[in-house]
Write a protein that binds this DNA or RNA. Structure first.
Lengths: 261, 261
DNA sequence: CGGCCTTTTTGACTCGGATCAATTTTTGTA
DNA sequence: TACAAAAATTGATCCGAGTCAAAAAGGCCG
């Protein structure tokens, strides 16, 4: 499985203006006043946009910056020693990449653009010293990391307790909310990732993804063709996502005896 | 499933001396000089020890402190809206509890002592202001959170890719390393948690845990009676833990055709 | 020490999703 | 626009772990 090496040679730095970025209210500087924002802005760099399939960095690269997604999307992929790859995260606009690399000072996986994507680079040592002087920024950094831990916990629950339909429903609900957060329609969007990536991420075979999508369509939960997604019944999907193995409608007969404590 | 409410009424505060704590080299203050350690020490409180089964805090409680385990062990359990419980973490001495609660300011689950356990309470607002003035502490805090994110990623891989034997092997290797880290024998220890908790944590049925443990014993990988564990062949167990479905020895015949890319 | 409750083990059965295989559709590129 | 390669779908089969059920072992308390 050929993963293209990181193509950007740190060419073409741009000074970026957080002040003019439509995502600044969602991104790290979300709580900063005007002059703090200036300071923050001063340490940011925007790299040349990544092409689809291009790596922002590679597994094993040494860590020096975190990145904020400005537009586009990326996936994190970790290779284990058997060469198996595991998709561990998807990143959408305003989200932070690299917080999991601070402790080891090494990136634990590839991060690869799923489409044409631009990111802001935030050198971590600068970020840290800024965090010393700007309590709001420091707190926001703690919050971001803490939130990611919460997301991870939800993901573990998904992987260890949910059946395939529930996993996929959760996945779409999650994606929808994140799209909505950054200003897109939650119910109509284009999937940035392949079925393969979804399956890998959710711990399911691609074929299973395909079959469940077919089922979702005939249940009128969503309409999908190719990567174009329309969520038709958000509520039903949401219930399916949160419900653990006791979904309402048809299928899955269950002995009625089992009343839990 | 009755979970005892938090019994501690903040009775009996003790001033704790990090300086005399055998875990200080592993815990948050690990990188602090003498006078910084004094400052850190000043904000710590030790609660009265928790009895087995007692909750340090409950799901939904508002967050104000993180905790460091001084002795004993705990589990984190999250209840979803269907009343299903999910064991999401185990905590051993020197490890930090509550970092995942910063973003929501609410504890996402119960944390319950698995045996008689004492913890140090570290009020988060104090910790944060200390982190402002002590760069080493701030960095260590970032590192701890980042490390937890890395652990979570490994857990996701375990849940989505590993077969039951591999999960359990990983679990024991992980536990062994953590015991070793805080000064106990990595190969002989007493399991603080029930089979039930292990199964829940690993996404497996209790019966499966039981069967695999039986297999591990007859393969001479470990000797277990009750909760007393002896790891006999650490290396083999480690290989099993990291290897994905291509373990060496017997069982599991596999068509030899499948050479991966 | 004995009895009760919890935890653990063992057995038998079932079924859901992985896997293999083949076809169809989409995408990228000349 | 057409061709090749990649991605997605559809079908058929098989096996492993969940589930149910029951017995055995262990722990706790009077």
């Amino acid at each position: 499985m050929p993963i293209p090496s990181t193509g950007s040679k740190y060419t073409r730095f741009h000074r970026t203006r957080c002040q003019t970025c439509s995502l600044s209210a969602l991104c790290l500087p979300l709580a900063l006043g005007a002059q703090d924002m200036d300071q923050f802005n001063a340490i940011i760099r925007r790299r040349a946009p990544l092409k689809k399939g291009e790596a922002l960095f590679c597994q094993g690269n040494s860590f020096s910056s975190v990145f904020a997604v400005r537009s586009g999307s990326l996936k994190q992929v970790t290779l284990d020693q058997n060469g198996e790859e595991q998709v561990t995260h998807f990143y959408l606009p305003s989200e932070l990449i690299g917080l999991d690399s601070i402790s080891e000072q090494i990136h634990p996986g590839y991060v690869i653009a799923l489409e044409r994507t631009s990111v802001c680079e935030i050198p971590f040592n600068h970020l840290d010293s800024l965090a010393e002087h700007i309590p709001q920024l420091r707190l926001q950094l703690f919050r971001s990391m803490s939130k990611e831990m919460g997301d991870d916990r939800r993901m573990m629950r998904l992987l260890s307790r949910k059946v395939p339909d529930e996993r996929l429903a959760s996945f779409f609900i999650n994606l929808a909310m994140r799209f909505q957060r950054c200003g897109y329609s939650p119910c109509s969007f284009r999937l940035p990732m392949a079925r393969n990536d979804i399956g890998n991420y959710l711990g399911l075979a691609v074929e299973t993804i395909s079959r469940i999508l077919g089922r979702f369509q005939q249940q009128q939960l969503m309409a999908i063709q190719g990567r174009e997604v329309h969520i038709l019944d958000f509520e039903a999907l949401n219930i399916l996502a949160e419900t653990q193995g006791c979904q309402l409608d048809q299928a899955r007969t269950r002995t009625s005896s089992d009343a839990s404590a």
